[in-house]
Design a protein around this nucleic acid. Structure first.
Lengths: 344, 344
DNA sequence: ATGAAATGCTAAAACCTTTTATCACTTGAG
DNA sequence: CTCAAGTGATAAAAGGTTTTAGCATTTCAT
C-alpha cells in the first residue's frame, strides 16, 4: 500500500506526470478506452502500479453517478439472521468492487430515516431491506426512491424484487424425512400463528399429511417446547411418534422435556427442528436434525439481483423462493433407511 | 423524499436558480458561511427544503477529503459478537452523518485485501477492526494506512487504540457474586487455555480466591460442560459448591449435566456463566446468572474514538477496558442476601 | 500528387460542492 | 467631498476522474 512521498495518495495526475503524458492519455491507457499506443499503455500501467495509483472512487462516482456502494437496512441488532445474509450479499458484490453499508434501525423510525438519508446522500446505487420476520414492513417509505430496492427475508410490494426462504418446501423436507423413516403420527409444534412463516410451514405440513395432522401454535422459545410436550403426554393416547418443530429452540425445549419425562430421542420419538441455528442445533443432545434456510445463499442471490439492477439489466419482479436444505444429525436416528427408501 | 421533475436529484444549482442567486451564495446561505443577508439566507433555506435539496456527499467528500464513512472489518460471519458491536458503532456515528461499511473477511486473506482496497478507494475516514477473539491478528497489514485504525474486541499494536472487555473485572464480578452468596469451594470450568480471554478470566478467578481454586480448561461448547461435571462427580470429595463457567454454553452443559446426575441448580450447586448470550442464557433452566461484556457499549466507545480521530482530536493510544456487568437470573438463587451483604 | 482515413495524443468539459478572492455598492467619519 | 471601512453578492478555483471533441501527424488508396 504505497503512498506518495508527502503522504497524499497518488492521483492520476501523478501517473501522467511520471509517464510524460496528459491526464486523458493516462486515463485512456488505464481503462483501455479510446485509442492508445500499446507501448504507451504498458508504460502508463507499469508506472501506475509502481507508484500504487488507485482511482479515487468518490471522483469516479461523482462523474459516473455510480458510487459502487449499496445500503443494507435491517431492524435486527442481534444478528442471527442479518449477518449470514450480509455476508452473502457482500460475497456476491465484493468482486465487483461494491461495498455494503450496514444500517441497524433497531425498529426506530427516526433512526431508519436518519440512516436512509445518509445513504441517499452518499449516492448508494441501491438498497437491500432485511428484517427479522417476513411480514415486517420497513419503518420508512422505500417505495418511491430513485434507486432500486431489493427485499431479502422480507416481502416488498408487488412490483419489487424479494427473496425469502421456501418455507413450504422446507417444511415438506422435514415432514417427508419423518415419513420416509416410517413415522405416521407426526405432530407440529411451532411459533405464533401471526407469523407468515409459521402459517406457511403449518400449511405445508398439513398438505404432506393429506390434510390431517395437528398443529400447536405458541410463543417462540424453549419454554413452549416444554409446555407443549407436557400437554401431549398428559392427555389420552395415541401419542405422536414424531414431532416437527417450527424452530430449533422449540425443538430443544421439546427434546429436553421428553428426556425429563423419560422418553428417549430418537428411540421413542423423532424430532426435527427448523433454522439450523448452530449454537442450538449442534449442542442439543441428541444433535438436531433440522432445516437450513440457506440465508447466505439468499443474501448472495439478493446481491446478484441488486448488481443486475444497478447495471440496468432487467430483473423479474416478484418473490423468489430460496430452497431450504435438510441437515441430518441425530434427533431422528440414522437416515440410511430413509435415503435408500427415497432413492428406490 | 422529493426529486426534480426529470428524475435527477436536486443540486445546489437548482436551489440557486430557484432563489435567483449564485451558487456560491446558495452554498453560503445553507452552510452559514461567509456574509449573507438574513432575508436571503432564509429564502434559500426555504427553497432548498421545498425542492428537497440534500448535498451530494461524494462531491462534498471529494473537496473536504472526508467521506463521512468508515469501514469495519471483521473475521466473523456468524454475528454473535460483531453485530452488537456494529450496532454500537453505528449508533455513535449516525448522528454525525457517518455510515459504516461492514466487511466480513471470513478469515480469507484474499477477501480481506479486496475489502481493504475497496474501502481505501472509497476514501473511508478510518477503519475499525473486529475479531471473534482478542488475540487474532488481521489478515492484512493495517499498521501503515494513511487513515486511523481502531481495534474493537481485538488488540492492536502498542501505538494503536483498542477496546476490549475487562475480562479481569468481569470474572471478579462473577466470583465475588458467588462469594457474597456464601460459596467457598468455587470451581472454574472454561475454554481452551490458548485464548487470551480465557487466561485472563482464570487469573482473575485465582486472584479472587487468594491464589487458590481449580481451573479446568477444555474446548468451548456444551459437551465440555457435561464432561467436566462428570469428572468432578466421579472423583473423591470434597465437591465444589459453585461453578464459574467461562462461557454460557459451557454453563448450560454444566447445568444440564448436574440435572442428569440428580443435582439441583442452584440448590446443590450455584452456576455463573459468561457472555450473556441471550439465546443460551435466558433459555437455560434455570435461567443463567451471567456476565455481560457490554459489546454494544464497546462498539459505541470505539465509534466515538474513531470520530475524534477523524476530526483530528488527540486520542490516547493503548488498550481501553470496558466494564462488564453482572446479570442476575436464577442459576445462583436469589441475589437479595448477597446484595445486602455487599452494601453492608 | 491529392484527398480520405486512420492513429496517437490532448485540451476542455462535466460531475457537485465549498472556499477564496474580488467586485460593486453603501455607510460613516473626517 | 473624500477616503476608509463595511456589506452583500459572485466568479473562479479546487478536488480527481472520465469522456467528448478536436488537433496533428501518418498511412493508404486513387
Amino acid at each position: 500500500m504505497m503512498t506518495t512521498s508527502h503522504g497524499r495518495r497518488a492521483t492520476i495526475r501523478d501517473v501522467a506526470l511520471a509517464a510524460g503524458v496528459s491526464i486523458s492519455t493516462a486515463s485512456n491507457a488505464l481503462n483501455g478506452q479510446g485509442r492508445t499506443n500499446a507501448e504507451t499503455r504498458d508504460r502508463v500501467k507499469h508506472i501506475a502500479e509502481k507508484i500504487g495509483f488507485r482511482p479515487n472512487a468518490l471522483a469516479r462516482g461523482l462523474l459516473s453517478r455510480r458510487s459502487h456502494s449499496i445500503g443494507m437496512i435491517t431492524n435486527d441488532t442481534y444478528g442471527r439472521l442479518t449477518l449470514p445474509m450480509t455476508a452473502g450479499v457482500s460475497e456476491a458484490l465484493v468482486d465487483h468492487g461494491v461495498s455494503v453499508f450496514l444500517c441497524a434501525t433497531n425498529n426506530d423510525p427516526r433512526l431508519a430515516r436518519l440512516h436512509l438519508e445518509a445513504l441517499l446522500d452518499k449516492q448508494v446505487d441501491g438498497i437491500i431491506f432485511t428484517a427479522t420476520r417476513l411480514d415486517l414492513a420497513p419503518q420508512v417509505d422505500l417505495s418511491r426512491l430513485p434507486i432500486p430496492v431489493v427485499y431479502a427475508f422480507a416481502e416488498g410490494p408487488e412490483t419489487s424484487v424479494s427473496f425469502v426462504p421456501d418455507d413450504h418446501q422446507g417444511a415438506r423436507l422435514a415432514v417427508e424425512h419423518l415419513l420416509s423413516l416410517g413415522h405416521r403420527r407426526i405432530l407440529h409444534i411451532t411459533g405464533p400463528e401471526d407469523f407468515a412463516a409459521v402459517r406457511r410451514r403449518a400449511a405445508a405440513y398439513r398438505a404432506c399429511l393429506g390434510g390431517e395432522g395437528e398443529v400447536m401454535f405458541g410463543p417462540w422459545g424453549e419454554d413452549w417446547g416444554h409446555e407443549a410436550v407436557h400437554r401431549i403426554l398428559t392427555r389420552p393416547e395415541p401419542r405422536p411418534d414424531a414431532i416437527f418443530c417450527g424452530s430449533d429452540e422449540t425443538a430443544r425445549g421439546v427434546i429436553d422435556a421428553l428426556r425429563d419425562h423419560g422418553l428417549s430421542v430418537p428411540g421413542d420419538m423423532a424430532v426435527v427442528g427448523f433454522d439450523n441455528w448452530h449454537v442450538v442445533a449442534a449442542q442439543t443432545r441428541p444433535a438436531l436434525t433440522t432445516i437450513d434456510m440457506g440465508l447466505k445463499e439468499l443474501g448472495r442471490r439478493a446481491g446478484l439481483a441488486m448488481l443486475d439492477l444497478t447495471q440496468g439489466k432487467p430483473v423479474e419482479s416478484g418473490i423468489n423462493y430460496i430452497a431450504c436444505e435438510l441437515v441430518v444429525r441425530a434427533s431422528c436416528g440414522t437416515d440410511l433407511a430413509g435415503q435408500s427408501l427415497m432413492s428406490s
